[in-house]
Nucleic acid binder design. Structure first.
Lengths: 153, 153
DNA sequence: ATGCAATAGTTGCAATTGCAAGCGATTATA
DNA sequence: TATAATCGCTTGCAATTGCAACTATTGCAT
């Protein structure tokens, strides 16, 4: 049970976040299965709209996955009629990705289900705690993404 | 940018945790690559010792992945001489999984690297904030795992 | 202007993972 | 104690993902 290396506080914290993520992701997976979406597909749909659209690379950058993953995930979504690729008017290399009406409807349905499940799970903390948690996480996220950017520079 | 469904507070919080996890996981991946381990492999090694060992199924349950994933992940670790399967004396169906000396050394090396990276990243919060965060996350984790258990019942 | 590096996206390939079926061992039930 | 249900683990198969290589386009530096 006890490893020879003493775990640090930060390590414990990281472990906590990891455990929680695993639990949340597992819950997400079950909920989203009802609308036949994987968590990653849902993340992509969440980032789209029906008007201007987004470029594939931008989405990949936000989700920290390689371009080819987005390409093929979008292939699937498009085959299901949920999104539509359209040429970017400003850059002939790029594609803009749009939600179709059907995609919008499914996305909203998924969000309703997902939000209800998340609400229930986050309800384990009272509102004051949720507020606290949110502030801490926002600070952490800001720092982490900044660090990531400077790493990539 | 703005979706037609108003995002709830809980939803925002979930999004934060998700984003942070993605960032942390990306960081983990880079660090662990230096010792040629995937995050999941590292998670498994972290849960092992050199004495009694753990059963494969128990590890899978903790990491919320199916048994076959553990089977094959252990196949790889064993092929690299990091772990060893040994029959469970109490149950002839089961295998107990042990760290080899080499596995122990690598695990400790990985933990040193990983901890240093985590320490640096969690250092974005001051000690008081880390303390706060830890308390909140522990409460959340406890609630979530309890919920998971009752789901599976 | 011209050539060279960087960028957007796609494709081939290998590795990882989940699901379902299967096999031996164990526990529960009658 | 016989039989059925469950459990621990493995294997076949399909799906998802990352990496590297490639094409087409853009932008920068001369």
């Amino acid at each position: 049970m006890s490893p020879p290396v003493a775990p640090s506080i930060a390590h414990e914290q990281h472990r906590l976040i990891h455990d929680i993520y695993v639990l949340l992701d597992d819950g997400d997976r079950r909920v989203l299965q009802k609308v036949n979406l994987s968590p990653l597909e849902f993340s992509v749909l969440q980032r789209l709209d029906t008007a201007q659209g987004r470029r594939l690379t931008d989405i990949g950058a936000e989700l920290l996955c390689v371009k080819s993953t987005i390409t093929r995930l979008v292939d699937r979504l498009e085959a299901h009629g949920l999104v539509r690729r359209t040429p970017d008017p400003d850059d002939r290399r790029a594609q803009r990705l749009l939600l179709t009406p059907r995609g919008l409807a499914l996305r909203d349905e998924a969000m309703r289900l997902h939000d209800a499940a998340v609400e229930r799970r986050m309800g384990l903390l009272d509102p004051a705690e949720q507020q606290q948690l949110r502030a801490l996480l926002e600070k952490l996220r800001a720092g982490l993404s900044e660090e990531l950017e400077s790493d990539n520079r």
